[in-house]
């Protein structure tokens, strides 16, 4: 396989903007519109596609790298079964499938309390999520009366992938609150919360207006303490929180 950095002619430590510039330069050169009268226009078009693929590969690799996700896969948009929507950033949770195998042993004692029917339903919901059928997953979850940590986790996952990030965060928080020692739950919550911090850091250099919402900071601290979750991103407030003075 060709090295995407070589295709774009940039070094591996190039910044994202440098990569975008390199992509632009090459795509202008090889774009089909610019090669209508070129006797080798097929070759130019092939090169254009190669450049586009290289760009996408680099951007996707870098995104996975920074969010520490498995290679399970961003880029599944629209590729999921049932024509459900799939909003990009949560593709990395392909890891859930493998985690599910461990679910039985991990939560043996809890599982004994389930009625058989519920445990089948949990399994079905997880399968729907893995297959990309999020609405079906939520339907199944709706029919389960036993709303334990696992329930909130699965609901958070399905919601996140549908783009319902507000519901997702709320349910992930509940899952962590009910089972603070589960790393999978915490990982989902911190992923859902991490975007806000990143966005605010970017916002600062573009003059994002600040608003003095007082005693919010304390509130979030209490909440974090209550649910026993760590604050990745550190600082006074948890992630995803805007604070002002």
């Amino acid at each position: 396989m060709t090295d995407p950095y070589q295709v774009l002619g940039v070094s591996r430590d190039a910044s994202n903007d440098e990569i975008k510039k390199a992509y632009r330069k090459l795509s202008r050169k090889y774009h089909p519109d610019a090669n209508i009268n070129n006797p080798n226009k097929e070759a130019a078009e092939a090169k254009f596609k190669e450049v586009q693929a290289a760009y996408n590969q680099i951007i996707n690799e870098r995104e996975r790298g920074t969010s520490g996700q498995s290679s399970a896969g961003y880029g599944g948009y629209g590729g999921s079964a049932g024509g459900q929507d799939f909003w990009g950033s949560f593709g990395g949770f392909g890891g859930y499938g493998s985690g599910y195998g461990g679910y039985g042993s991990q939560q043996q004692n809890q599982q004994n309390q389930y009625q058989d029917e519920d445990s089948l339903k949990f399994r079905a919901a997880a399968n729907y999520i893995n297959a990309g059928s999020y609405t079906e997953a939520l339907h199944v979850l709706d029919s389960i009366a036993n709303r334990n940590a696992q329930w909130y986790y699965l609901s958070a996952l399905a919601n996140a992938r549908m783009g319902s990030n507000i519901n997702a965060k709320e349910h992930a928080r509940k899952a962590v609150e009910m089972d603070p020692n589960n790393m999978q739950y915490r990982q989902l919550l911190s992923q859902l919360e991490s975007g806000g911090q990143w966005y605010q850091d970017m916002g600062q250099s573009y003059g994002m207006p600040t608003i003095n919402v007082s005693d919010w900071c304390c509130k979030i601290l209490c909440l974090n303490a209550a649910c026993g979750c760590l604050c990745p991103g550190a600082g006074c407030c948890g992630p995803g929180v805007f604070y002002y003075h």
């Binding site: 992509y23 966005y199 605010q200 929180v241």
Partner: peptide, 22 residues
């Protein structure tokens, strides 16, 4: 409300930063 709004913008901007815009 601000936190909800910010979550939307964060996801929007993640997609924006992936696009090759100069």
């Amino acid at each position: 409300c601000q936190s909800m709004l910010m979550m939307q913008m964060a996801e929007c901007c993640k997609a924006f930063e992936r696009l090759p815009i100069i």
